[in-house]
Amino acid sequence: MPVSRRDFLKMAGLGLVGSGLPATPLKQIARNVTTDNAASMLYDATKCVGCRACQVACKQRSGLPAEPDAQGLYETPRDLSANTWTMIKLAKENSEISFVKNQCMHCLEPACVSVCPVVALEKLESGPVIYHPERCIGCRYCMAACPFGIPKSQWEENLPLIQKCDFCADRLAKGEAPACGEACPTGALIYGTRGEMLGKAHARLASDKNYIQDVYGESEVGGTSMLYIAGVGFDALGFPRLKDDPLTAITWPYMKAVPAVIAVMASLSTAIYFRTHRDKGKQNGEEASDGSKD
């Protein structure tokens, strides 16, 4: 979206709307030791042959049902859904074609986690953004807030839950690789720490100029755990163009200000009350002539 939030905040800083709100934009999140050690995956679109072994492995591990075609012959999901947490899509840019794998990006500063009113989504320090289905109230704010459109709802259920890739958090905890990464036969999808993955990604970009010279996910919305390098543009692969500021940097200054708003509004109202009721008798006399109807 072409709004320059930073520019606008500068303007706000000029005093148009007063001081304090919204707060100054956060500094671009610096890579630090914690995120460098967190779990991460690198998907190299140039190495992917579209075999969908990752897709099958994901369904096997999570026990999700197949989404068959009309004849019930093929497993043919059209898009991510409550029952399909990852899938390979084909993208075209002019004459170039490329596969692309979709799944939750496991943001470093996840919008879904910040908006969930009941803490049903949680960012683990080890990397995954996981879901606590027993807490979810089904408000679907996470679906609205996710810039990648990842969380999906079980629309056909009477009491629907949110579904999305959980980065095989249970497997990671046991020291195993995520199911999709383990299944990849070509090395297009590799798993490691975020520091390692970024190192490898940049090494590959430097060694081969046919790559688009950018690692998608390195800094978008504050960085994601899933990193992408490709031979065709990321627009063509269906990725949104996102700025580096985490989305939570927009809402948090407002949420942080809640106690201040309470203090200001309560004391302001009280002050005005005492000010206007100081000379009660006189004012009532004035108001009465104004024609109170009852």
Binding site: V115, P117, V118, C136, I137, G138, Y141, S153, L159, M255
Partner: peptide
């Protein structure tokens, strides 16, 4: 709400980052 019977979860799970909370 998808899970209206859990509306009271707002009382026990607190996410002060969430506008909806």
């Amino acid at each position: 709400l998808g899970q209206p019977q859990r509306i009271w979860h707002l009382l026990i799970y607190h996410n002060i980052h969430s506008p909806l909370f």
